[in-house]
Design a protein around this nucleic acid. Structure first.
Lengths: 225, 225
DNA sequence: AATTTCATGTAATTCGTTACATGATTCC
DNA sequence: GGAATCATGTAACGAATTACATGAAATT
C-alpha cells in the first residue's frame, strides 16, 4: 500500500526533518537541494503531502512560521499549512535512510540519497557511493561494448554524442572515487587537528569532503528572474 | 491530433529514414543511438509504430530484411514486420528536422536532435547548438544565484552535489563551444581536399567535428550480457 | 490601483513502464 | 531437447505534468 514515488516522499521527509515548512517553500527547497536532477510541480507535491499525512508521518499545523506569528493570530483566514514530521515519520525516514535497494544507484535516486548524506551514517554512505560507482561501471562497459560492436554504421555526430556521454560517466566515476577516498580517510584518521569546536558538525574536514576551488566567483547577482 | 511524445516519434522516423527495420531492432538502435539519455520499452515502441502507420508516415512490410529472404518466402508464418518510411513520413521528418521550439533545448530533446545532426542542415544545427548553450547558461545563472542566496543553510554534501552539478553543466557548455566552433570552421573552409569521393558524406573532416583521443581501447568484449 | 509573488489545491491528460501472453529461431 | 534470444503485442497501472481555479500578501 501507498508505494508512492519513493523519491519525492524521501526528499520531503528529509527536508521536513531539518525543519517544518509549508508546501510552497518545500517545493522551492526541493528544486534547489536536489538541484539539477529533479523538479517537482505542485500537482505532484500537494497530493503527496496529503498521503504522507494520511500515513501518519506528517501533521499539518496552522501557519506558525516565524514571520507568520502575526498573520496566524488573526481570525479565520486561510493560513499557510505548515507540515511537521511526526515521530513515526522520523522513524520511517530513518528506515529509508539505512535501506538500500537496486533503485538506489539510479540517477535520481542517487541524487536524492546524496542530498541527505548529512543525515546518513557513514557505513550507508559508503554502500551508496560504491553501489553507484559499480552501476556506472556497468554502464560504461555496455557503452564500450556497443561502440566496438556497431562502430562502422554510426555517423560522426552519433559517435560524438556517445563519446561525450561516456566521458560524462567516466567523470562521475572519478568524482565518486574522490568521495569514497575522502570517506575512507575520514574513517581512519580519527581525531583531526581541530575537530569538535566547529558549529556545523559535518563541516571542517571531519566529514572528509575533498576541497575544491570555488566554482562561484563573488558575483553579487540581482534576482533569479 | 496525434501529438505523440515527439521524442520517440522523431527518433523512430530518423532511424527508419536511414534504413527500414523491424521493431525489435529499432528499439535496440534507439537505446544505443540516443544512448545514455533515453531507453524505451516495447510497450512504448509498438503502439507508437502503430500510430505512425495510421498517420501514413510508415508502412508495414512482411519481413524482407537481408537475412530473412528465406524465412519470408515460407508460407503463413508470422513474419517480422519491417517498417519503412513513406514519402509523407520522409517529408514529415524533414519538417521536424528544420523546426525548433522551446522544447528543443531540453536535455532529451536535444540529445535526439543531436543524434540526427547527420541529416540536419548546418543552419539548423547551429541554431540547436546555440539554443542549447544559452539554455544551459540560464541554468548556470540560476544555480549560481541560488548558491549565493542560500549558501549558509546547506550542509557540505548538498553543496558538493550542487557544485558537481554545476561543473557538469559548465563542461557541457565547453563541449558546445567546441562544436559550434567546428561548425563555423566547417562553413568557412569550403572545399576540403578530398570531399565528394567518400561513401559516407558526413564523415571525414568536411562536417568538421573536433578530433578526440579514442576513449575506447580496442577491448574485444564478448557480449553486452 | 495594479502587478507580482506567495500559497493551496483539483481534474484531465500525457507519457511511459511492468507484467503478462505468445510464439519462432538459434545456440549448445 | 532445453535455454537463450529474437519478435510482437496488450492491459493495467504509475508517476508526474498541465491547465485550471482560487485567493492572500507584498511591492511598485
Amino acid at each position: 500500500m501507498s508505494r508512492r514515488s519513493g523519491i519525492l516522499e524521501f526528499a520531503v521527509l528529509g527536508l521536513l526533518r531539518e525543519s517544518p515548512m509549508h508546501g510552497y517553500e518545500l517545493r522551492k527547497r526541493l528544486n534547489t537541494s536536489l538541484g539539477v536532477f529533479r523538479a517537482f510541480s505542485y500537482g505532484t507535491l500537494y497530493p503527496c503531502l496529503k498521503t504522507l499525512v494520511a500515513n501518519g508521518w506528517l501533521i499539518e499545523e496552522p501557519g506558525s512560521a516565524p514571520e507568520d506569528a502575526l498573520a496566524a493570530s488573526l481570525a479565520g483566514r486561510r493560513a499557510k499549512i505548515v507540515y511537521r514530521l511526526t515521530a513515526e515519520g522520523k522513524e520511517h525516514f530513518e528506515e529509508l535512510l539505512s535501506h538500500t535497494g537496486p533503485d538506489t544507484w539510479e540517477d535520481e535516486h542517487f541524487a536524492a540519497r546524496f542530498a541527505f548524506f548529512g543525515q546518513t551514517e557513514r557505513e550507508v554512505r559508503m554502500r551508496v557511493l560504491e553501489g553507484r560507482r559499480s552501476r556506472l561501471e556497468e554502464r560504461l562497459e555496455k557503452m564500450r561494448a556497443s561502440l566496438t560492436r556497431t562502430r562502422e554504421r554510426l555517423d560522426d555526430y552519433t559517435l560524438e554524442l556517445q563519446r561525450h556521454g561516456m566521458e560524462s560517466v567516466e567523470r562521475e566515476v572519478r568524482w565518486l572515487n574522490e568521495l569514497i577516498e575522502s570517506e575512507r580517510a575520514g574513517r581512519d584518521q580519527r581525531r583531526s587537528p581541530e575537530a569538535g569546536a566547529a558549529q556545523q558538525d559535518t563541516s571542517g574536514d571531519a566529514g572528509g569532503l575533498p576541497r575544491h576551488r570555488g566554482t562561484t566567483p563573488p558575483d553579487p547577482s540581482e534576482d533569479t528572474k
